[in-house]
Design a protein around this nucleic acid. Structure first.
Length: 495
RNA sequence: GGCGGGAUAGCUCAGCCGGUUAGAGCGCAGCACUCAUAAUGCUGAGGUCGGGGAUUCGAGCUCCCCUCCCGCUACCA
């Protein structure tokens, strides 16, 4: 793909979107502005697996994942909405948003849009709110190491707690920097915020209404600035959501619940009922309206909660939409409420400890994955197919030898390279190997290794490398030296 | 190595175009209350704003140097 030739178009596209998040815009600019600008990028790979390139003469080639995957988004839409999919991808009036993680920024902001623009019939993403990473209990997520919380397992072990997870994940969404999912924190947020603030408000209002008015909305005149307050919150939440500040939006929704708790503390209806029943009606009427509003406002974040609230209030969800939030008459006086139920249960310590233990028990290896390892895993996830047959003569061309690493040092200005000197018995030579992220130089000297001795020399980073060290790569991407079981004379032939 | 992003209270994060005593939620402490899943409300204690220089009347915000974390990219025979 001649990205170099497309640079002007892409540049124009990116610069039209200065409103993108700084990390997103910044990285796009860095690709566009660095050195010679965008470079042509190969859109096929020579692999035994993948999507074959459907072009004559391209036998044996498969599509590059980042050419293939975005097309998959479109095909997926076609599968889901065979009649209307074009509205999503082609309609000029559609606002196309790509939600991604930071590792995919350029693919969604440069390469995919380039494809869409070149095709001609497609619209380009209006915004790509790339998030940073969500880590787990101190380490990067890794599905291959099983350092993860699997959704199906979570749902089985915490039945009905979809919204609890949604709440926590939204609260800690890595919008501007990496964040961390910690089970203890999950517990705290659920117990101290969801249960204590939102769940408790709903419960106390339902209980009071039940006790004083047999579960019917009391007759009361409007009072206070409730309407202004809630519609103000609705606007704030809308604004935050439109700008992809979900944490902030969620916080504003919770503030509505806080407001309800404040009202109760201030008015103390449990006291007021003894002295001024009419005022008490007003207080509870307003509290009930707050809850009804919360049924609407919680919907984007906590859909199950929203549903529960509508049910408890005996309202038909379909009769209300987002813009109804702010009304102080969502519930009519005399309206019979449904049965009260607890919105959330507290999460016990044992449940949390069990999760943490499970995580550590099932994690493949204790050591946290390094950057390279995680990436490698992605690349090797599909087992490589066996290679084609070769003759014995082909094999005998290889000169495999036993050698011993004498020295090892990092290569300047290269993250992955180590410069090794290896004693092969008949001579000592320099070998550059891409293992710097797996081994520390100081742990290598005196280690016996297997070497491809007759590989054509090659200059790497200005250093002549003569040969190659053999390593085995396990399923986690970790490298292991291939070496003789017993100490063997340097230079010994391997065959 | 180059580039992008980040480093602000114990924790999670806000801080607009540089401007008086740096904010919120959670946690913690105290007080109030008892309708409520010992929940809520109020008050308070917590900050050398990663480190060091510079510009400015004035810098968390600007510039330079450095350290650490994440990502992209190059090297990986």
């Amino acid at each position: 793909m001649p990205l170099d030739k497309l640079q002007p178009k892409i540049e124009k596209y990116v610069e039209r979107h200065k409103d993108w998040k700084v990390n997103v815009y910044g990285q796009c600019k860095s690709w566009l502005d660095s050195g010679d600008g965008l470079q042509p990028r190969s859109m096929t790979r020579d692999l035994d697996w993948g999507i074959p390139v459907p072009v004559e003469g391209a036998e044996g080639k498969v599509l590059y994942v980042w050419f293939d995957a975005p097309i998959g988004y479109i095909s997926n839409t076609i599968e889901a909405f065979p009649d209307t999919w074009e509205q999503y991808w082609k309609d000029e009036d559609t606002r196309l948003i790509h939600f991604i993680g930071k590792d995919n920024i350029v693919f969604h902001c440069v390469i995919f849009p380039a494809m869409l623009m070149e095709h001609g019939e497609f619209i380009t993403p209006d915004n790509v709110p790339g998030n940073e990473f969500l880590n787990l209990e101190g380490s990067k997520l890794s599905t291959s190491r099983n350092w993860a919380v699997w959704l199906h397992e979570y749902l089985a072990e915490f039945p009905g707690k979809q919204d609890e997870l949604r709440y926590v994940l939204t609260s800690i969404a890595p919008e501007t920097k990496d964040s961390e999912f910690i089970w203890k924190d999950y517990q705290a947020r659920v117990n101290n915020e969801l249960v204590a603030i939102l769940g408790n408000l709903v419960n106390r209002v339902m209980v009071l209404t039940d006790k004083y008015y047999e579960g019917k909305v009391p007759q009361a005149g409007e009072c206070s600035d409730l309407k202004a307050f809630i519609s103000g919150k609705r606007e704030a939440i809308t604004e935050s959501l439109e700008n992809f500040r979900l944490r902030e939006a969620l916080g504003e929704m919770m503030n509505v619940a806080r407001h309800g708790n404040q009202m109760l503390s201030e008015k103390e209806p449990w006291k007021l009922i003894k002295t001024d029943p009419e005022q008490t009606k007003i207080v509870l009427y307003d509290c009930l309206q707050i809850i009804a509003n919360l049924a609407i406002l919680s919907e984007p974040f906590l859909p199950f909660t929203s549903q529960k609230l509508f049910r408890m209030l005996n309202l038909n969800k379909e009769d209300y939409s987002w813009t109804d939030a702010g009304r102080q008459d969502l519930l009519q006086p005399g309206h019979q409420l449904g049965k009260a139920e607890l919105l959330y249960q507290k999460i016990e310590d044992e449940a949390i400890e069990a999760q943490v233990q499970k995580l550590h028990a099932t994690a493949a290896a204790q050591k946290p994955a390094t950057k390279t390892e995680t990436k490698k895993v992605e690349a090797t996830k599909t087992d490589e197919a066996p290679k084609g047959e070769i003759t014995y003569d082909d094999f005998t061309k290889l000169d495999l030898r036993v050698g011993t690493i004498l020295t090892a040092e990092k290569v300047e200005k290269a993250d992955k390279l180590l410069k090794l000197t290896v004693d092969l018995g008949f001579e000592t030579r320099t070998i550059v190997s891409g293992i710097a992220e797996h081994f520390k130089p100081e742990e290598l000297p005196n280690l016996q290794v297997s070497v491809v001795a007759n590989l054509a020399p090659r200059k790497i980073r200005g250093i002549e490398s003569k040969g190659m060290i053999l390593l085995a790569e396990d399923e986690t991407g970790k490298l292991h030296f291939v070496l003789p079981k017993e100490l063997t004379k340097n230079g010994s032939i391997i065959r």
